[in-house]
Amino acid sequence: MAATGQTQNRMISDFADCKSLIIGIGNSGRSDDGLGWAFSESVEESELYRGDIVLRYQLQIEDADLISAYDQVLFVDAHSGRVDRGMRCELVDPHIEHSYSTHALLPGAIVGLCKELYDATPKAYILMIEGHEWDLKIGLSEIAQTNLSRALQYFQEEINQ
């Protein structure tokens, strides 16, 4: 993950007060890989949050252009490793990524490109939600559902601060 590794308390609390964007990353046809989308859709339905929301299969270079128009960005993605309470939110560290393939970029690379191309550095976070099943299947596993609920609760508490 392109994050600093530093978890912060109430890090996204000013999301409601600025021009903000949630980017849900994943694929709902791959079971728990749909966590990023499920989170984004739940936030949209709950009307907790009035900023913008987009869904992505993968992050691509043009997303650098997209985020340049925002003050804050929250990337939400499924996480295949193990984290306490099934979710974790971290600050994203902007960096330049050199890879032979540019089909999929990490959040840090998008923020780095945004800085490079548009001289803009939105404050960016990644919310990682632990998933367990990745097969071709629509619907989250039971444990992913639980982790999604925790992530939504965390988000709600943060923006209600």
Binding site: H98, T102, A109, L117, Y118
Partner: peptide
């Protein structure tokens, strides 16, 4: 890679995007 294009040839990269 296009990332390097973005660094060294910003105008072309911005147009492309």
């Amino acid at each position: 890679s296009v990332v390097q294009v973005a660094i060294d040839h910003k105008e072309i990269a911005r147009k492309g995007i």
